[in-house]
Structures are given as C-alpha cells and as structure tokens.
Amino acid sequence: MKNVLASIGIGNASVDTVLPTAAVRPGDTVDAEVHIEGGKVEQEVGTVRFEIETRYLTDDGYREVDLSRFTLAEGLTIQPGQSEVREVSFEIPYDTPVTVGGVKVWLETELDISLAVDPEDKDYLDVRPTPRLQAVFDAMDDLGFSLKSAECEADPHGRYTSGRRFVQEFEYRATGGEFRGTLDEVELVANPGPDALDLFVEVDRRGGLLSELSGTDETKTRARIETTDRASVRQQLEELLRKHV
C-alpha cells in the first residue's frame, strides 16, 4: 500500500534546493545545496534534474521555456526517511531575462522517479541586469526616458539572435530631456555576453498620420556597449538617438 501511495505522491521522497540568495546576474556562478528527504518507501531516482525556466508571450498566450538544464546525479536509491545533501554549482545563462515588470525566472529541481509522481521544487530568482545593461538603464534615465514595459516576446524569425525563441524587449517613453516631443518611444533588445552587450534599438519618431501608416516614423539600428561607465554609455546612446530624430 505504501508503494501505491508513493506512486501518487503520498509519502513520496521530497527535494528542496537551498540558494544562498535569490538575487543573481546573468553570467554568475551560483553555489547551492540540494536537500533530498526519503519518503515512506525505498525509491529509485533516475536523475536529479535542474532547469532554469522563464516564460514568453506568443500570439496564443504565454509559453514556458528552458534557458538551461543539467543533471546533478543519476541512479540514486533513497531509503525511507533518509536525508541527503548534495552541493551543486550552476551558471546563470547570459540570455536570462531581467525580472522586471511581470517577467519571472525560476529554478526547478526535479527527482525523476519511475512509476511515481516526480517530486519537484521551484525557486524564483531575482535576476538583476549585468553591469553593462545597468549602465544602459541608467543612461536612458539620464536622457529623460521612463521604462514603460519589459516583456519577453516570441522571436520566431530570429530577428535579433539565432537559436533563441524569444527576446526581452524594454519599451521606453521620452518623458523629459531633449527627446521629449520628438520621439514617441524607444525599444531596446539587449544581447549580453561576457565581453560586450549588443543593443538593438528601434526608434519611433513623433510624426504625422501618413508617416505612421507608412512606417517611416520607425528606424532600427544597433549599438555595441563595451563599458560599464554610465556617462560614456549615455554619450553613446545620446549620439545614436540624435541621428534618428
């Protein structure tokens, strides 16, 4: 009877991943502990699996996606009442979105147990921007822009990157400074890496109805951010935006 109950999750083994902090940045290496507790019966664990996940918006609603997945252990036998702690290190991928607005990122730990409900643990992450992306955010603030939205959206045609199904788009409105009244909005898509950040920029100028209908009020361009200095990034973005006013 205990085996039957465990197969539907009653008296099953459990797993809990303990993180030193929920705050992470893309490119970070995180050290954590995985606590496994045996249930009422002996159980064979095929794998202890990790997945870093998020969700992105499609025409049909939100879809979940794995940013990274890896295996900690294979072929474990967990005895009734057994407690086991395993240490694990994993990297936060550079394409992990920043958790602003409604964007969510989480680490899911799962015990793969044959013929039973797989025990799992979900830990939400507070993903902060990389230093270069933070410099971009600060520079946009200095230039009089306010963040309107930051959504993960499907990119089925790979307009910005290859091999990724979605991008995170930051939409800014000009609420002050020299660009207020001349630019409607600026949309940014960041592609960070260890040595630089590629920034895709769409500038929406304030124009008349004809220009909006024809699409001539929008310009797409890009910049490569190699510094974390706020003033330097501000100057770089200011010069770029002035070309498209």
Rank of each mutant, 00 (worst) to 15 (best):
L5Y: 12
R25A: 14
A223W: 01
L143M: 09
S211H: 04
G101Q: 02
L210C: 05
L19R: 09
D204N: 14
Y94N: 02
S162A: 10
Y56F: 15
G193H: 04
P26N: 01
I36N: 02
A174M: 04
S89L: 10
D204Q: 04
L111N: 07
D118G: 03
F145G: 00
V15G: 15
T58M: 05
V30C: 07
E44W: 09
E110S: 11
R180K: 13
P129D: 07
I78A: 03
Q236R: 07
S7G: 04
E171H: 06
D16K: 15
T161D: 02
V88E: 00
K104Q: 15
K148L: 15
S214G: 11
V4Q: 10
S232L: 13
T99F: 01
E212M: 07
G9D: 01
R132S: 07
G176E: 08
A223T: 01
V98M: 10
P192L: 02
R86E: 00
D59F: 10
E51G: 10
T77M: 14
L57I: 11
Y160A: 00
T182L: 13
G9M: 00
R132Y: 07
D155M: 06
S214Y: 08
E171T: 15
I78Q: 09
P194S: 08
R222S: 14
A73W: 01
V88K: 10
T77V: 13
G9H: 08
R159Q: 07
T161C: 03
A190M: 06
T221D: 00
V189F: 00
H35Q: 13
A6M: 05
D112V: 07
G46Y: 08
D31F: 12
R55G: 15
L213P: 08
V85H: 05
S83T: 09
L241Q: 05
I225A: 02
A174D: 01
P26T: 00
R164W: 08
V24T: 10
L143S: 06
